Amino acid sequence: MSTPPPPISHTTEMVIATVVGAAIGLTTENYLLGIGIGVALGIGLSVAKTLYVDYKRRKG
């Protein structure tokens, strides 16, 4: 029986999304827009990293 792969860390993506969302919210003074963009960006980057790491693990 093989051991499961180590979990994927998404800390970098969350930091990037938080900084971008906060910057957009503060510059436009529309905090709800900044929150929405930050959450969407965080989800998008996390999904992209998960797919990339999974692809690399399957490839070799």
Rank of each mutant, 00 (worst) to 15 (best):
Ala40Lys: 04
Thr11Pro: 00
Val20Tyr: 01
Ser46Cys: 09
Val20Thr: 09
Ala48His: 08
Tyr31Val: 09
Leu26Gly: 09
Val53Thr: 12
Leu51Ala: 13
His10Lys: 02
Val19Ser: 02
Thr12Gly: 08
Gly34Asn: 01
Ala22Phe: 12
Ser2Ile: 09
Thr11Cys: 05
Ile43Pro: 03
Ala17Leu: 05
Ala40Thr: 12
Ala23Asn: 00
Ile24Arg: 02
Ser9Asn: 14
Met1Arg: 10
Pro7Ala: 05
Tyr31Asp: 00
Pro5Trp: 06
Lys56Met: 14
Asp54Lys: 15
Ile16Val: 15
Gly36Trp: 00
Leu45His: 04
Thr18Trp: 05
Tyr55Glu: 09
Arg58Val: 07
Gly21Trp: 03
His10Met: 10
Tyr55Trp: 15
Glu29Ala: 10
Glu29Ile: 00
Ala23Gln: 00
Thr28Met: 06
Glu29Gly: 06
Asp54Ile: 08
Glu29Leu: 08
Pro6Gln: 11
Ser2Leu: 13
Ile35Thr: 11
Pro5His: 07
Ser9Gly: 12
Pro4Asp: 09
Thr28Asn: 02
Lys59Gly: 11
Tyr55Ala: 14
Leu51Gln: 09
Glu13Leu: 04
Gly38Lys: 02
Tyr52Thr: 09
Arg58His: 09
Ala48Pro: 01
Ala23Val: 10
Asp54Tyr: 11
Lys59Ile: 03
Tyr52Pro: 00
Val15His: 03
Gly36Ala: 15
Tyr31Thr: 07
Ile37Leu: 13
Pro4Val: 07
Arg58Asp: 09
Ile43Thr: 07
Ser9Trp: 02
Lys49Ile: 03
Val15Gly: 01
Gly34Asp: 02
Val39His: 01
Ile8Gly: 02
Pro6Arg: 13
Glu13Ala: 14
Leu32Ile: 08
Ser2Pro: 15
Val19Leu: 15
His10Glu: 07
Glu29Tyr: 07
Pro7Met: 08
Lys56Ala: 12
Pro5Thr: 05
Gly38Trp: 00
Val20Phe: 07
Gly60Lys: 08
Lys59Ala: 14
Thr3Asn: 14
Ile8Phe: 03
Gly42Thr: 02
Ile16Cys: 04
Gly36Asn: 11
Met14Ser: 14
Gly38Met: 00
Gly36Met: 14
Gly38Asp: 04
Ala40Ser: 15
Ala40Met: 11
Met1Ser: 14
Thr27Ile: 13
Gly34Leu: 03
Thr3Gln: 14
Gly42His: 04
Thr18Tyr: 06
Gly21Gln: 06
Ala40Trp: 01
Val39Ile: 15
Thr28Ile: 05
Met14Asp: 06
Thr27Met: 13
Pro4Glu: 13
Gly25Asn: 05
Glu13Arg: 02
Thr3Ser: 14
Gly42Lys: 01
Val15Tyr: 10
Pro4Leu: 13
Pro5Phe: 07
Gly25Cys: 05
Val20Cys: 07
Leu26Met: 11
Thr50Tyr: 12
